[in-house]
Design a protein around this nucleic acid. Structure first.
Length: 779
DNA sequence: CAGTGAGCGAGCTTCCGCTTGACTT
C-alpha cells in the first residue's frame, strides 16, 4: 500500500528522496511549473482586477494527467516544491490543477536532501502560503505585461520579431554602454621603468633583484633623461620591510560563481557549464546546480572535515559558514557541491570530470585554513634622482587552502607571487646590470564575457540562477549581441635600455586588443537600447528590478495587495506605450555622413531589411540609390564617410584567370574571391578584399582546389548516379545530389560499395525527415 | 551559402522562471 504521494520539482530529486522514505510513499515530479498565463490577451484580464488566466501548456498536459492518476490512488498528498516564491506558486498550481483538497494535502519544505531533513519536514507540515503565491503572481503578471506590451512596439517602430523585457533589455543595455565607453576611450601612454640589480650574498654568489621605479614618466624625453642619469648613479638600499598577510578561501559555488570559474578555468560557455552540471546532478554526483545559496549541509561539513584531516592534516582544517552577499538570493537549495565528498574524482567524459573536480576543490578549499604569506618590500635609492626603485617579493609561509584551489580573476594583470628576495640589507650598495623604460598604454574597460555579464546581472539582482544561461541565448538569438573572437592589431611602442654603460632606443611592436569569446553589441542592439531608453527609461533603470522585488516582498509579508501593486504600475506604463506608438518615428538609426565626391549625392548609413547598410543617393529621388552592407566591427554611429565609400568599391574585378573573371568582395560570410561562379573565402585577418591582388587570389583558388582534391576518399558510380565519399571536419561523409550524409563511426569508409552508401543514405533520410517535422512543429 | 534594400498586406513574432528532454553538427 502506498498511501502517500510526494510531489517535487525535479525527477532526479524524486528518485533520491524516494529512497529515504518508506514503502508507504511514492514520489513524483512536476518538472517545474505546470501552469502558465495564457498567451491570448496577455493572459491577464486588465479591466477585471488583472485577473490571471492560467492554462496548462501542451508539453505539461501529460505530466498533469499522470499526476492526477497518482493523486487518485493516494490518501495524503505532500507538496514538496522549493521553499521560495516560485516553489510556493508551483505548490499552489498543483493544488488547483490537481483539484486537491485541504484535508488531504500538506505543504512541506526541506533545504537539503538527507533522511533527517526529509523526515523532519514530514513531521512539520503546513498549508500553502497564499501571500507568497500572490507575490509570485505579481512577478509573473508584471513580466508578462512589460514583455508583451514592449515587444510589439519594437515590431512596429524598429523591426519585426524583436523582443524586450525586464531582464534582457537591461542586459543588452550593459553591453551597449560598455561598448560606447570603449569607443570613446582614449588610450594614454607612459613609461614604466624597471631595473635588474646584482646582489651578492654571503658566499659571494650574485642574485638578481628586479625592481620597478615608483614613478612613471609621461614623456619619452623624461624617460631618456632619467636613464641617462642612471649611468653614473649609485644605488643604495634604503629600506627593507617584511609584513605578514593572509588569504582566505572563497565561498562554495553558486550557479553564477560556477559559471564564472568554469569560464575562466575551463573555457566553458555559460550554457555548456549548465548542461554538464545537469548531467552530474542527474547522475547523483553533485547537488542541485541552479542555486544562489553558499550554504553547506551539516553532513557535508562533517565529511569535508574528515577528508581534510586525513588528507592534509588538522592544521589545514578550518570549518566555516558562508553568508550570501547577494540581496536577491532566495536560498531554497544548498550550494553546489559533490554529493559524496569522499569521491575526489568521478567516472565520466572529460568535461564532466573537469567540472566535478573544480566543484570538489572549491568545496574542500572553503573548509580549509587561510594561507599565510609574507610580503617583503625593498626600497632602493638613486643618487641622481628623487625617485626610488621598489622590489617586492611574496613568499608562502603556509599554503592552507591554496593546496587545493586558487581562485582566478577577470583581471589579466600578472599577480603571481614574486618569490623570495635576495638577502640585501639597508645601506647595501647594489650594482645595476640593466635599466629599461618601456612605453605602456592604458587599457579601455574590458568587454563582457558571458560569465562576467552573469556576474554583473547577479550584482544588480537581475535574473535568477535558472535564467542566466537562457537570457544570454535570447539576446544573441535576437541579434542584439554576438559572441565572437576578434583579432588584435599591431601597435608600436618605444623602449629605452641601459646596459653595459650604453643607452639604446628601439621601437618594438606588440599585438593589442585581441578578444576571445567576448560579447559585442550589434547596431540593432544599440538602436533598440536607445529607443527603449528614450521612451521607457524606468524599465531600463538598473534599479527597476530591485524596486519591484521590494514590492513583491511586501506582498509576501501582507503589507500591500498584489493587484494594487500592479495597478500602480500598469496604467501609466500603458499610456506611455500608446503615446510611443502614436507619436514616435520609425527608428532606423539613420545618419547622414556627407556627400559622395564622385556623384555629389548624399551618403547615409542606416538599418535596412538585411541589417546595417550604407546608401548613396536619396530614396525618393528618381535614380535608385546604391546600397552596400556594413562590415563586421563597423558601427552606424562610428563609421566615417571614407569607410562608407570604400564599401562601394566592392565587388572589385582583379583580372582574368583561366579566361574567367576574378572578383573580390565581401559577403555574409566575410571576404571572398569569386571565380567561374565559385566562391573562395579570403582569410579574415590577413587578406583585404579592397587591396588584394590577382596573384594572391589565384593562390587562394589553387589552395582551395588542392584541399578539395585531398578531400575525396572515393568516387562511386552506377549508371547516371554518382556519389563521393569525402573527408570532412567531423569525419568521412557521403555527398550525393545536393545532400551530405555522415558515414557511421563503426564503418570503414574506404571499403564502402555503392549499395552500402545508398543504404546509409536511406537510413539517414528517414531520420532527417522525422527531424524536419518536429522542427516545424516547434516553429 | 556570398548579387538583395519599391510598396502592400496577411500572418507571425514577444516576457521571466520553474523543469527536462531530444536533437546533432
Amino acid at each position: 500500500m502506498k498511501d502517500n504521494l510526494v510531489i517535487v520539482e525535479s525527477p532526479a530529486k524524486a528518485r533520491t528522496i524516494e529512497k529515504f522514505l518508506g514503502n508507504n510513499f511514492v514520489v513524483k515530479s512536476s518538472y517545474g511549473h505546470i501552469r502558465d498565463l495564457s498567451k491570448k490577451n496577455y493572459g491577464v484580464d486588465i479591466d477585471n482586477g488583472y485577473k490571471p488566466h492560467y492554462v496548462i501548456p501542451d508539453d505539461k498536459k501529460k505530466i498533469v494527467s499522470e499526476l492526477k492518476k497518482n493523486v487518485k490512488k493516494a490518501v495524503t498528498i505532500w507538496l514538496a516544491s522549493d521553499e521560495d516564491r516560485e516553489g510556493e506558486a508551483i505548490a499552489w498550481h498543483l493544488y488547483e490543477a490537481l483539484e486537491l483538497n485541504e484535508e488531504s494535502t500538506n505543504r512541506i519544505v526541506f533545504h537539503e536532501i538527507t533522511k533527517e531533513a526529509i523526515t523532519n519536514a514530514i513531521n512539520t507540515p503546513r498549508s500553502i502560503d497564499k501571500k507568497l503565491v500572490e507575490a509570485q503572481q505579481a512577478r509573473r503578471i508584471l513580466d508578462r505585461l512589460v514583455g508583451f506590451e514592449l515587444s510589439p512596439v519594437l515590431w512596429k517602430k524598429v523591426k519585426q520579431g524583436l523582443s524586450a523585457g525586464r531582464v534582457q533589455s537591461v542586459a543588452v543595455r550593459l553591453l551597449v554602454e560598455r561598448e560606447r565607453e570603449i569607443i570613446a576611450f582614449k588610450s594614454k601612454s607612459s613609461f614604466k621603468v624597471t631595473a635588474v640589480f646584482e646582489a651578492p650574498d654571503e658566499e659571494g654568489k650574485t642574485n638578481q633583484l628586479k625592481a620597478e621605479l615608483s614613478k612613471r614618466f609621461e614623456t619619452q624625453k623624461e624617460a631618456v633623461s632619467f636613464i641617462e642619469n642612471c649611468k653614473k648613479a649609485q644605488f643604495t638600499v634604503k629600506d627593507r620591510v617584511t609584513k605578514p598577510s593572509k588569504k582566505s578561501p572563497t565561498a562554495p559555488f553558486t550557479t553564477s560563481t560556477l559559471q564564472q570559474e568554469a569560464s575562466r578555468k575551463l573555457g566553458f560557455s555559460v550554457s555548456q557549464t549548465m548542461s554538464v552540471a545537469q548531467r552530474l546532478y542527474e547522475a547523483g554526483k553533485i547537488t542541485y546546480m541552479r542555486t544562489d545559496s553558499v550554504n553547506l549541509s551539516e553532513s557535508a561539513l562533517k565529511s569535508a572535515k574528515k577528508i581534510i584531516e586525513s588528507q592534509f592534516g588538522e592544521k589545514y582544517l578550518k570549518s566555516r559558514k558562508y553568508k550570501t552577499k547577494t540581496k536577491s538570493a532566495q536560498e531554497a537549495h544548498e550550494a553546489i557541491r559533490p554529493t559524496y565528498l569522499e569521491n575526489q574524482t568521478i567516472e565520466g567524459n572529460s568535461h564532466e570530470k573537469r567540472l566535478y573536480e573544480l566543484i570538489w576543490k572549491r568545496t574542500i578549499a572553503s573548509q580549509m585554513s587561510e594561507a599565510q604569506l609574507e610580503k617583503t618590500t625593498v626600497t632602493i635609492g638613486i643618487s641622481t634622482s628623487e625617485h626610488n626603485f621598489i622590489a617586492t617579493g611574496e613568499i608562502l609561509k603556509f599554503d592552507g587552502f591554496l593546496k587545493v584551489y586558487i581562485e582566478s580573476t577577470d583581471d589579466e594583470q600578472e599577480t603571481a607571487f614574486g618569490g623570495l628576495l635576495p638577502p640585501v640589507d639597508v645601506n647595501d650598495k647594489l650594482e645595476v646590470s640593466s635599466v629599461q623604460a618601456t612605453e605602456k598604454f592604458t587599457m579601455h574597460p574590458p568587454r563582457y564575457t558571458e560569465a562576467s555579464l552573469v556576474k554583473k546581472l547577479e550584482e544588480l539582482g537581475i535574473g535568477r540562477p535558472s535564467t542566466y544561461a537562457p537570457t544570454i541565448s535570447t539576446i544573441q538569438n535576437r541579434g542584439y549581441v554576438v559572441k565572437e573572437d576578434r583579432p588584435g592589431r599591431p601597435r608600436k611602442y618605444k623602449s629605452i635600455t641601459l646596459e653595459g654603460g650604453q643607452v639604446s632606443q628601439e621601437v618594438k611592436t606588440e599585438t593589442t586588443g585581441t578578444e576571445k569569446a567576448k560579447l559585442f553589441p550589434n547596431d540593432i542592439g544599440m538602436l533598440v537600447t536607445d529607443f527603449l531608453m528614450k521612451h521607457f527609461p524606468e524599465i531600463m533603470d538598473y534599479n527597476f528590478t530591485a524596486k519591484v522585488e521590494k514590492e513583491f516582498d511586501e506582498i509576501a509579508e501582507g503589507k500591500i495587495k498584489w493587484d494594487e501593486m500592479i495597478h500602480k504600475f500598469y496604467p501609466p506604463f500603458h499610456e506611455k506605450v500608446q503615446k510611443t506608438l502614436e507619436t514616435s518615428e520609425r527608428s532606423k538609426g539613420e545618419r547622414l555622413l556627407g556627400k559622395d565626391p564622385a556623384s555629389g549625392k548624399n551618403v547615409y548609413v542606416k538599418i535596412g531589411k538585411y541589417g546595417p547598410m550604407a546608401q548613396i543617393g536619396d530614396s525618393d529621388s528618381e535614380e535608385k540609390p546604391r546600397f552596400a552592407a556594413l562590415r563586421k566591427g563597423q558601427h552606424l554611429e562610428t563609421i566615417t564617410l571614407r569607410e562608407a565609400l570604400d564599401l562601394f568599391k566592392l565587388p572589385r574585378k582583379l583580372g582574368k584567370y583561366e579566361e574567367k573573371e576574378v572578383v573580390a568582395g565581401v559577403g555574409r560570410f566575410g571576404p571572398y574571391i569569386m571565380h567561374d561562379s565559385k566562391f573562395y573565402s579570403l582569410r579574415k585577418e590577413s587578406d583585404d578584399p579592397l587591396t588584394v591582388k590577382l596573384d594572391r587570389a589565384i593562390e587562394v583558388i589553387e589552395e582551395k582546389r588542392k584541399r578539395d582534391r585531398e578531400k575525396i576518399i572515393k568516387t562511386l558510380e552506377e549508371g547516371d548516379n554518382k556519389l563521393y565519399i569525402l573527408k570532412g571536419r567531423w569525419g568521412p561523409y557521403i555527398s550525393y545530389g545536393n545532400n551530405n550524409y555522415k558515414v557511421p563511426k563503426d564503418v570503414n569508409a574506404d571499403e564502402l560499395s555503392f549499395e552500402d552508401c545508398m543504404k546509409i543514405i536511406k537510413n539517414q533520410e528517414t531520420k532527417s525527415n522525422k527531424r524536419k517535422t518536429t522542427k516545424r512543429k516547434k516553429k
